[in-house]
Design a protein around this nucleic acid. Structure first.
Lengths: 209, 209, 209, 209
DNA sequence: AATGAATGAGACTTCATTCAT
DNA sequence: CATGAATGAAGTCTCATTCAT
């Protein structure tokens, strides 16, 4: 997931005009998209949720698609700020994985809707040029995680008998699917969930003999 | 996921028509639904993929929705045949989990498209009465897995220090998300994938000290 | 084209506002209307060209349509001042035609945009009561030109072997279509263009035997 | 006006399907476009005129714009067939002009609506890449007419004292504006109109001294 | 005077579905 | 069985216009 070059909307929508209102509306839209799916969501439903008429949304945004775009790219930008900080910290492989997982759950906590949308829609969005940055991010993401896992195998902190790509998918999916059931303000804090997830992933759920 | 035999077409569709052609068309439809999402798929795209015109599909099926219905219910019926056999076998908790995971990967191998559709669409489909059987299945599914896990904790074969519901979601998601990247005929057989997944889930990816 | 003083704004627009600004804005609007067509022009494009926001135009004008109205009626008023002077001068038919053509090219020079708009839009505007004055003008126009041509035929200065209505349309169109390509400040002055046009219309482009 | 490369509609509309219906609908659309202007015409008005619902038009055409495109390009293709035949005939300059004018009035007779649309819309359409062929045609058109006129001046059959570009515009506009008032089946046949126009253009409307 | 935000009507377009052939 | 043509509902988007500030 890349810190997107963000489509420069030259046309009309005031990107200048009050960014708070924009953000409010995007949050509303993200919530509806996450709940119903992007395609199944009508512009009118977003507008209803925002307390305005469908047409009024177009004062703030070019199109329904550009809302989706902005939701996803904003999320990815923030995500990579966190990831890049972790990767630059020079930690050992196990500590890096721990930090990445923790960071991920924090992002899920902060951008639950965006993550859920990303999970559901990103695959078929990458076909469109406008959303190529999703693949870019995906690749960068894979490099960071897979690289760390490989480093760990070489350093003998991760098992060598497993297919490394399988392990990668396992860890990756395990973390991000959480967005589909996670509700902020629930029983466990993001950090607590991260701790338990890491414990399962690293040590397994079986009792040690 | 229940084997609710919800298929009886009430309206008109010729059940007389050769069931093989029906299945062929459903397979085609499932593939397209999985690739693009149900909502994003037009009836014309399915027809194109099947080499006919959109209207012609209606000789075989009542509606786009009934195709989805049939795809999902067929899959769930088969899935529960396998699951029920496992659950009736009277295995210990660890062996039950192993058998369920293995069975799941076999289903993914056989019904990749259906599983992918299920993953993406089931949440917002359960709202419709027609698809209530999806929630039924979900519940039955949860009871089987959660029950087995709890049994394992009591039997001291699974760790007691983890939130059991978190563990459940972890195992469940770990398995099913695989449908999003799995391609039949790949490097690893379903059983091999199951073996490695189980190894990770049960024993973790970290090297034991 | 009549000088129907159809301008009195009945509704609200501040006529108090400086008339120069009004004229400026109308000139801008006319330019955009001429370039893109009235229907294809959005109020926002006019506002952009004027360096303000769309809504702000409504401080100056009732509606987009009233801008068009004012552009056209102002032009026609001026046109008829010139024409009426010519017609009142008591010239012979050939001299009258010469004077009318010359006057027309001067109007095109002064009101290029308005003339272009008139050419493109007048036909479908005449349906609306608000723009009935366009048909009135058209009729008065036809009477003046056709009458002069007929007078010329009777006086044996214009050919009698031509369909007089065809001749009328020929002369009329010949003159006014020029607005579609004419650019003020070009190579030829309006009077020079008029001279050459008259030479062609009166004597033809073929070399005399 | 070029014999257009015609946009290859790859997407969906059956260009194969009954070309007669297509042509019928295009004729209807052309009539409405010519009467009201392209922008002022709604898809529903076209559909009403064709006795169907607005959406049904999209079975035959990609978009309102593609109808316009097909109307114009079909017309231009036919026009250039006629023009090219004339230009290839090796006539003298005066005879070439006569043949071109005659051919033009025949085209106006056959494609009155298309010509009217061309006159009104072509200028602002050329901005769009899709309609670049309009400029191409315009250029080819200019080369043919201007070239013939220059040839005529050199051959001393056309006057040398006139600005040749002015003459070109004069002749060109004179002919084509006729589409705005011409009604097929009127008093004069296209050939008769051509004859009188040529008489005016070549010899003028004034009586020879 | 001008802005920023919103309204509401209506435009173009898509698409599941129907049905005579 | 399948096609070709059409329907009708609904969806996205545009735009002239309004109005409080």
């Amino acid at each position: 997931m890349p810190n997107t070059a963000q489509t420069p909307s030259k046309k009309k929508t005031q990107v200048t005009a009050s960014p708070e209102r924009r953000r409010e509306l995007l949050d509303t839209a993200a919530e509806v998209f996450a709940a119903q799916g992007y395609n199944a969501t009508t512009v009118r439903e977003i507008a209803d949720a925002a307390g305005m008429l469908a047409g009024s949304l177009y004062y703030h945004f070019d199109s329904k698609e550009s809302m989706l775009d902005e939701i996803l790219s904003t999320f990815l930008t923030e995500l990579w700020e966190g990831y890049d900080a972790v990767l630059a910290a020079g930690l050992g492989p196990r500590e890096t994985i721990e930090a990445l997982v923790t960071e991920s759950f924090r992002e899920i906590d902060r951008h639950r809707a965006a993550v859920a949308i990303y999970q559901k829609e990103s695959k078929h969005l990458t076909a469109q040029p406008r959303f190529h940055y999703l693949s870019d991010s995906q690749q960068k993401f894979e490099k960071a995680w897979l690289g760390t896992l490989e480093r760990g195998v070489r350093a003998r902190v991760f098992r060598a008998d497993l297919d490394i790509r399988l392990t990668y998918r396992f860890v990756r999916d395990t973390v991000w699917v959480a967005a589909s059931w996670y509700r902020p303000g629930g029983q466990h804090s993001p950090d607590e969930i991260a701790r338990q997830y890491l414990s399962m992933v690293l040590d397994g759920i079986a009792v040690r003999p």
